[in-house]
Write a protein that binds this DNA or RNA. Structure first.
Length: 559
DNA sequence: GCCGTTTTCGGCCCGACTGTTTTCAGTCG
């Protein structure tokens, strides 16, 4: 059982304790343990084995026992007891933005709200405002946020859908009746969120594959006679499996990959493609270069005509890994561990960008801590210079952009960093004009080198602040500031739809993992996936620069 | 339930923001 699965049970226990009126400090202990486990490098189960789990901060003897029990059978006594004492739908109610454990509990006890449907009905019937402390505005927000939650619940983040579907695809490939199987649909196009996963399999025996899928999926349903079967993976991700004879695989792969807009535009000019075994045949027949699947959105990919498509960025093109956190702020690995993890992955430079002083919750660095960290970066670089002169650590900071658009340190502190990533973390409730001005002012600051997660969105969790992307991008281009494409699968922000605007203006895009733990450096994969979707090429990507070129970029464009 | 200690209990991340109040509770990051 993975750390994150164990952490989920512990976090749910924390919520249940508060919902049922338990000791809030005890609840927080569960919450803290869950977070510790989520960020833990090595396997909690392994640590149970060698008795070192209690060395992890926030995990004592009792918590370690709970973890052992969860690792064994997926849950533990306290969790089961609490879960059976609340209505099953109540956990959904608590997912509504603005409803924490306290308000959810009152809605449950005082209005008998036990599901999203109940909540929506109570708000529509004007019952919510009858509770002390709940006004008209709160009731209105509840209605809107229930609708938003329902929309979110219908979709899956790219990385989650991919991870859930991959084992299914691997197993499918080992099936005797299957000649070939591939991802297709929105997943293959690297959409940031998808409604369902799609897989295409080539087979001469569709019925045998259907039987296999029926046994493998929850709630399987056949569609279009025997050419499609739908069902749900264990993780809850809906999957649609298309079956096609090997001779027609290529054309079917093209069509199921979509997007519908791409296929329609294709057929309007080139006609419907004949059956092909290989997808290349579809494009050859139309005298088109093979258009990479990520680009098939009818957003200019046909303008390529006879030209070969752009050589899109690959993970191998990345030489640097900028914007990472350490235990100096809210990361879970030391600066040295983080740098070494980057080195192990073959990067030639690493940027440490812990949080700045005003972000207290994330233990943002005081000017004194900045100085201390600078000294450690210098020591690390001396060490690396001996062992691996081709590797270097850069001292950066993720500086908060304050409400007025200024950065979070005086210039004498800002002067000591190798580079500054400027990001907004507070005060999201802005008009588009306010947000845009705040960002543009930060971009105009000569110390800013990268604009961090430009909209602050969390996919399927929170809309970002509204931003006039064009103005912000143009300001970045003008001031030599790179735009971050934050590779955290919950962010993928800059949105891919704006990447071509940025690159066409000459602004660089920096694909940053925003890693709060060593293994999360691997988030870069999703940043690359979405960067490709925005037509990003290596020369347009800041951290695809060599160590030498990156150093030069810092020197040339710096304050 | 964890942790640290002036060590076996007492306190527990902290400030901003929102919507409700009329001084604050709840939520969020």
């Amino acid at each position: 059982m993975s750390n994150s699965e164990i952490a989920r049970v512990l976090q749910e226990t924390a919520d249940l304790l508060e919902l049922t009126g338990g000791n809030p400090h005890r609840a927080r202990a569960f919450s803290r343990a869950a977070r510790s486990l989520g960020n833990l490098q090595d396997s909690a189960v392994d640590r149970l084995g060698d008795g070192t789990l209690t060395d992890v901060s926030g995990i004592g003897e009792a918590m370690a026992d709970h973890v052992a029990e969860i690792a064994g059978d997926g849950s533990f006594d306290l969790h089961d007891e609490l879960l059976s004492s609340v209505p099953p739908g109540l956990m959904d109610v608590m997912q509504v933005k603005g409803l924490g454990t306290k308000r959810t509990r009152r809605l449950w006890i005082e209005l008998d709200v036990t599901s999203l449907d109940d909540l929506e009905q109570a708000a529509k019937n004007d019952q919510v405002t009858t509770l002390d402390g709940f006004g008209a505005k709160t009731q209105q927000n509840i209605l809107e946020n229930v609708r938003q939650l329902r929309r979110y619940n219908e979709r899956w983040r790219l990385a989650e859908a991919w991870a859930a579907t991959e084992p299914f695809l691997q197993d499918l490939r080992t099936e005797g009746a299957v000649e070939r199987a591939e991802f297709t649909g929105a997943l293959r196009r690297h959409r940031e969120t998808v409604e369902y996963a799609e897989v295409l399999a080539a087979t001469e025996q569709p019925n045998a594959v259907q039987d296999w899928a029926r046994a493998r999926l929850k709630d399987p349903t056949a569609r279009n006679s025997s050419s499609q079967i739908e069902g749900t993976l264990e993780e809850g991700v809906p999957v649609r499996l298309h079956l096609i004879s090997p001779g027609q695989f290529g054309t079917a792969w093209w069509r199921t990959t979509g997007s519908p807009a791409h296929c329609t535009a294709f057929e309007d000019t080139c006609g419907a493609p004949a059956p092909h075994a290989r997808e290349e045949g579809v494009f050859a027949e139309a005298n088109l270069p093979v258009i990479p699947p990520e680009l098939r959105e009818d957003r200019g990919e046909f303008d390529l005509a006879g030209d070969s498509p752009p050589a899109l960025l690959t993970q191998e093109d990345l030489h640097g890994c900028l914007h990472n956190h350490s235990t100096y702020s809210d990361g879970s690995n030391s600066l040295r561990e983080m740098a070494e993890a980057a080195q192990d992955r073959g990067f030639s430079y690493f940027g440490i960008c812990d949080h700045s002083q005003s972000l207290r919750i994330a233990e943002g660095l005081s000017p004194e801590e900045v100085q201390r960290q600078r000294a450690e970066v210098d020591r690390l670089n001396e060490d690396f210079a001996e062992k691996d002169p081709q590797f270097r650590v850069f001292h950066g900071i993720e500086s908060d952009i304050l409400r007025d658009g200024s950065l979070d340190y005086d210039t004498d502190v800002l002067d000591t960093f190798d580079f500054v990533v400027a990001s907004i973390h507070t005060g999201f409730n802005m008009t588009e004009e306010e947000a845009t001005q705040r960002l543009v002012r930060a971009v105009e600051n000569p110390y800013t080198r990268i604009l961090g997660h430009p909209t602050g969105r969390l996919l399927l969790q929170r809309e970002g602040y509204p931003v006039d992307h064009a103005r912000v991008i143009d300001a970045c281009a003008e001031h030599g500031v790179a735009l971050e494409l934050n590779a955290n699968p919950y962010r993928l922000d800059l949105d891919w739809r704006w990447i071509r605007r940025a690159t066409s203006q000459g602004a660089l895009v920096s694909i940053n993992p925003d890693a709060h733990a060593a293994q999360k450096i691997d988030y870069l994969r999703w940043g690359v996936a979405v960067g490709r979707k925005g037509w990003l090429t290596p020369d347009q990507c800041l951290n695809a620069k060599s160590l030498e070129d990156f150093t030069q970029w810092l020197d040339e464009e710096g304050p």
